[in-house]
Design a binder for these strands. Structure first.
Lengths: 185, 185
DNA sequence: GTCTATAAGAAGATAGAC
DNA sequence: GTCTATCTTCTTATAGAC
């Protein structure tokens, strides 16, 4: 990898972490470049503007989501078990969720009210999960509409748990509630 | 009411609305004062700083929450019905929730990651509902710990619905899901 | 109490030296 | 490619006239 590509990747990784931990709006170019030990003037050599960084992050995350889903599908062909693997993700990430909330939910929420351009960039991450969940519910014999409703319902439950866990800093709640959601599947 | 008090109330009402619709961070003094047709230089005559406006809003909302709860308690002494009235609130506010999310959830989330001072100001609104829900679950014969868990669980479900409804702009989902939550109570 | 004008600071973005 | 310095814009907050 060339030096330029290397720095670009460093900026993306640092931004991804900071956008999650502090939020997009509260993360400045200074924060990002300080984290990787370069001067902040550098950032616009690698990215035209802040929005382009977000796009880079979403691309990166979408690829990671695809890989995660592929792993779940390789682990089992049982759709009910796959849905449980989806829920398990929240348990695996419990520490980060308690501290920072859901990485998808908090980012998308930050944009949904009044930043339509950024919202459109971030939304596909959510949609990917929604569509995959609906597909798995269809495999369980549900019609396409009901399957999508069930997908939304599961997304909703998991987002609620992440949100309340984060707001009340209560990881015990996360564990109990996710287990209960898994059982009800 | 004196003129000063009148203007102060106007600022609080306008801020309350804008903080909900645009978010706290994205609402400027200019936005607020433009909404009520006064010069923006005026604002610090009535409030020391932006944080004080937030405090005023939270005070106002806490009073409204108390009144709402009192109304629910007057409507029925059946705790299960009271819990359903809590859920019904989301249905009554469906239009706003679709557009702007939950007024409590989105505000608290905005602060929870990296603005601890503002977070502490906003949190009591959530706690009020949590404690009241737990009290009602206790009335249904549950022990104090289980009652609190059930309160968290209901808060979580409702927050999830509000969040997903807002992010996907899907009011139909809200209606179906809240009705389903009510039935399961 | 409200106005206009402005200070002070932060953030995104640009320019030119090295 | 990275640095330092600077520009511009926005926002909170202040000062003084009316």
């Amino acid at each position: 990898m060339k030096q330029g590509e290397k720095t670009k990747k460093l900026i993306l990784d640092a931004s991804n972490e900071l956008f999650y931990q502090k939020g997009y709006g509260s993360t400045s170019f200074g924060d990002i470049m300080q984290k990787i030990g370069l001067s902040k003037g550098n950032i616009t050599y690698h990215f035209k503007n802040k929005e382009e960084i977000l796009k880079g992050i979403v691309d990166k995350r979408l690829k990671e989501i695809s890989i995660t889903i592929k792993l779940w599908e390789e682990q089992t062909s049982d759709s009910k078990k796959r849905l449980r693997l989806f829920c398990q993700m929240i348990i695996d990430e419990q520490e980060n969720i308690e501290k920072y909330g859901c990485p998808l939910g908090t980012l998308t929420s930050e944009f949904s009210k009044h930043k339509p351009k950024l919202y459109k960039i971030a939304l596909p991450m959510f949609q990917t999960f929604r569509e995959w969940l609906a597909k798995e519910y269809q495999s369980l014999g549900l019609g396409i509409n009901i399957a999508d409703e069930k997908a939304m319902s599961l997304l909703s439950k998991v987002q609620g748990v992440a949100m309340v866990t984060h707001v009340f800093k209560d990881r015990d709640f996360l564990l109990k509630e996710i287990e209960s959601i898994k059982k009800e599947l």
